[in-house]
C-alpha cells in the first residue's frame, strides 16, 4: 500500500472533493506543482486551470476545473481553496458553452468602449477563461 495524502478541495460554497490520493497536480502561477506524500509544508497561489489527483497505484486519475485560489500542504494534507471548482463529470457542458458565448459577446461589446469598462472587461475575461477551462476539463472524462 503506497503512502497517501489527504486531498481536500473546498470552495466557499461547498466541499467539492475529499479523498486519500497519491499525487496532486495543481496549476500554479508559473507552471504546475506536483505534490507527493511527505511534501514539505507549502502555500501557493493557483491560477485558473486543470487540477488532477492520482490514486490507486497511480492508475486512476480524476480531473477538476479550478478557477484559481490557494493550495496549502501540511503534513500529508493538501487543502485546495478554490473560488470555484468542479469535477470533470459534474461539469454542465451545455451551460458552460452557452456562458462562453455570452461572455464572448460581452467581450466584443466592451471592446468598443474600453475606457470606462476596464474592470468589467477583466471580470468578463475571467468568466471566459473559466468557461474554457470547464469545457477543456469536461473533455477529459473517459
Amino acid at each position: 500500500m503506497a503512502r497517501t495524502l489527504l486531498c481536500e478541495i473546498v470552495t466557499p460554497e461547498k466541499i467539492v472533493y475529499t479523498n486519500e490520493v497519491e499525487m496532486v497536480i495543481a496549476p500554479t502561477l508559473d507552471g504546475e506543482v506536483g505534490i507527493l506524500p511527505l511534501h514539505a509544508p507549502l502555500v501557493t497561489v493557483l491560477r485558473p486551470g486543470e487540477l488532477r489527483v492520482r490514486y490507486n497505484d497511480n492508475k486512476d486519475v480524476e480531473w477538476f476545473a479550478v478557477s484559481g485560489g490557494y493550495l496549502q500542504v501540511h503534513q500529508d494534507k493538501v487543502i485546495v481553496l478554490a473560488d470555484a471548482a468542479e469535477h470533470s463529470s459534474r461539469i454542465d457542458v451545455d451551460r458552460a458553452r452557452h456562458a462562453k458565448e455570452l461572455a464572448e459577446q460581452r467581450m466584443t461589446e466592451l471592446k468598443e468602449r474600453p475606457a470606462e469598462a476596464r474592470e468589467d472587461a477583466d471580470a468578463c475575461q475571467a468568466d471566459l477563461k473559466w468557461c474554457e477551462i470547464q469545457l477543456q476539463v469536461a473533455e477529459r472524462r473517459s
Partner: peptide, 8 residues
C-alpha cells in the same frame, strides 16, 4: 513550527 515554502 512547520517551515512553510511559499510560491511565488
Amino acid at each position: 513550527r512547520a517551515e512553510y515554502l511559499f510560491e511565488p
